[in-house]
Structures are given as C-alpha cells and as structure tokens.
Design a protein around this nucleic acid. Sequence first.
DNA 1: ATAATTGTTGACTCATAGGTACAGAATTAT
DNA 2: ATAATTCTGTACCTATGAGTCAACAATTAT
Lengths: 198, 198
Amino acid sequence: MARPYEFNPDVAIGRAMEVFWQKGYAGTTPQDLLDAVGIGKGSFYNHFKSKHNIFELCLLRYRQAQADALVQFLKQPGPAKDRLRKALQTLIEFDLEGPVRKGCMAVNTAAELATSDVRAARIVGEMFDRTESAFVQLVENGQADGEFRRDIDAHALASLLFTLILGLRIAGLVANTPERLERAIDAAVRAVCTSVNG
Amino acid sequence: MARPYEFNPDVAIGRAMEVFWQKGYAGTTPQDLLDAVGIGKGSFYNHFKSKHNIFELCLLRYRQAQADALVQFLKQPGPAKDRLRKALQTLIEFDLEGPVRKGCMAVNTAAELATSDVRAARIVGEMFDRTESAFVQLVENGQADGEFRRDIDAHALASLLFTLILGLRIAGLVANTPERLERAIDAAVRAVCTSVNG
DNA sequence: ATAATTGTTGACTCATAGGTACAGAATTAT
DNA sequence: ATAATTCTGTACCTATGAGTCAACAATTAT
C-alpha cells in the first residue's frame, strides 16, 4: 500500500559492507556509501536511519556470512588435522589475494571501535565466541581420533587456534609475502597435532 | 637566535600518541590533538606540519618504546619458558587493565590503515619484523636449553608465538574476562615447550 | 478517479575537519 | 635599541560530514 523500493536493501547492505570493510567506520563517508549503493541521500537515510545503523547491519551480515562459511567448512569430510590446515591455508590465501588487503571486518572493527562503540564490540565479541566454539568441536574431534594431542585441554587448544587466526589476519594486512603466515601455520599444526610418521 | 618553544615537542608527541592510540587515525580530530597537547593551532601546524605527519611521529615513537620494552624484557635472567610465559601474561594484563581497551597501536594501525596508507603500513611491518626477530632469539635460547621443542624450526615457532601475540591483542580488545586469553597462553606455552615433570 | 501511504530526489543546514595567513610576542646578534 | 629570526594566537577559509526537509512520484485501497 505504498510505493515500493527501487533497490534491494539486501544488496545495498552487501555493497555498504564492502566499503566499511575496506575503509573502516570513521574512514567511510556518506558519499562513499551512496556511490556504492547507488541511491540518493533521501532514500539512504529513509531506509537506514544513520551511518551507524547501516554499519551495524553490515557487521551483522558479515558475521552471518562468516559463520555460515565456517560451518560449511567444518562440515567437510576428512581428518581434523587436514581440515585445520586447510582452513588456515584457505584463510591466508583469501587475505593475501588481490592487491587490496581488507583483512577481517570483525578484527578491523575490534581494532577501531572496541574502545568507543559498545554495540559494535558486542557484535564482534559474540562472533569471536561462536568462532572459537566451532574450533572446540574440531579439536574434540581431532582428539577423539588421536590426531590432536590430548595432554592439552580442548578448550585451551581451541583458544590457541582461534587467537592465532586473529593474529594471522592482522599479520596478513601488512605481509608482503605469505612466508611468515605459513611458518606460523606450520608450527601451529605441528605443535597441536600428534606427530604421525607414515 | 629566535623565540624558543613554549612546549616540549617530545612531550607533545607522547600526548598525541595516546590520542591516536585510543581513537585511531581517522577518529582523531585536530581539536583532540590540540586539547591533548595544550597548544594553539598555529604552533601545532608550525611544528608538526600535518595530522598525518604527527601521526607518523607518534607511530615511530610507539615502535621505539615497544622495542625498548621488549628488549628490556628479554634481557631478564631465567629460563626461556618462564620469560615467554611472563611476557605473554604481562601483555594481557596490560591490555586488560583499566576500563579502556586501547590494545596495541601498531595492530590498530594495521587494521585501520594497512589498506590505504603505505607509509604507516611500512612502519608497522618493520615493527612486526623486529618483534618476531626478538622471539627467534628467545626460541633459540629455549631450544638450546632443551626447554622448547626442537622438532619445529625456531623461525616457525617464533612466527607462531608472534602471530599469537597479535591475536591476543585483538582478542583483548573485546574480552570481558581474561579467560580465553589465559587459555590460549597456557596452550601455547605447553604446545611449544617440552613437558618437564619435576 | 481519488485518497492514503510510503519511496525518492535534491536542495538545504549546521558543525567540524584540516588547514592557511598574518599580526604580534619572545628571543639573540649586533 | 634595533634588526633578524622564529614561535604563538587568532581569525579566516574551503570542503566535507552527517543529516533534515519539503516537494514530488509511485503504489494500493476504496
């Protein structure tokens, strides 16, 4: 019973997300968003209320997409150790592909806004919690199969691996070559898994 | 042969550094800096040229201070394993103390500016390189003494530990409790060191 | 066809970002 | 005392940030 949207809000959020992801919150201007989304200022503020509001929507979208991707990844068949290595390897390949290093939007947001934006910090914190939980699963699987060492608590190993990922994503932002990242991954997998020789 | 400064530029840089550290580059306004430094606009731009220029000075100052602190720390006597654990523990205590979570200025800068500011990225990248090198030393010591496992290359272990630190500093930004961080530290130390029972 | 409702456009606003320019103050050399 | 030099405070400037508002367009209910 009214005029319909001329744009798809979901698509708009996806486009805006890319901008925030690359430029950060403070670094993104309304004009950036208008250009990316391709609508006028009136429409923009009519639908999204404020810069901060659309930012939250973008962050939630990012979290959702990442959670899905991770679950998807962990569903794969095969030994836990292989899945771990593959996950980490895929991650740094993603982070290092292309000329522009966006890193992880959640990590970037933590660095920029954790101090000042309680709502953003909460969203990121919950995402971190969920992600770590997914790793607990992986580790428990790996321990059950004897691939991961059992002398260290599964939660502790998961925290280690998850925290390592956060570090990888920061390191990837300034890395010129993948070497450091690959060294870290290699050491992590070897340090966390039992050594099987053949 | 001219009017002397009415302020100490070194002190000014230290104050400005605190502001950038907490609010980020884009999030810091000229007014923030003037308030923190306590000088007028004319003086400010006369001495520091531009916001970006003083930011670089702050980042270099931060790097210097951190490098000194780390070297200082690694000079301490005692087993490498203890120094490692103490270093990590001290780090998260620093990051979690007080109500405001500033994190690490280099990490925050990487997250905010690595994409867009080549000069800042270089400074941060060099700082990362130096820090990792310091860890190589520690690991080699530890391996020589039989405290650290020798089946993983010292450089790889150092990369792992250094990357973990980056992750700890991100995780600390949104952590409500130190538990996750302590779990990660505990797992890391145990995964990297040989187990000595008694 | 018209009313009611909601989307769209673009002009407009106010404050601030990020600096510049310049007049005046403090110092040293002479 | 004065000149030369450099610092300091303040007014000023332009562009943009972030958003509001009013007129107009498109749709559905009746």
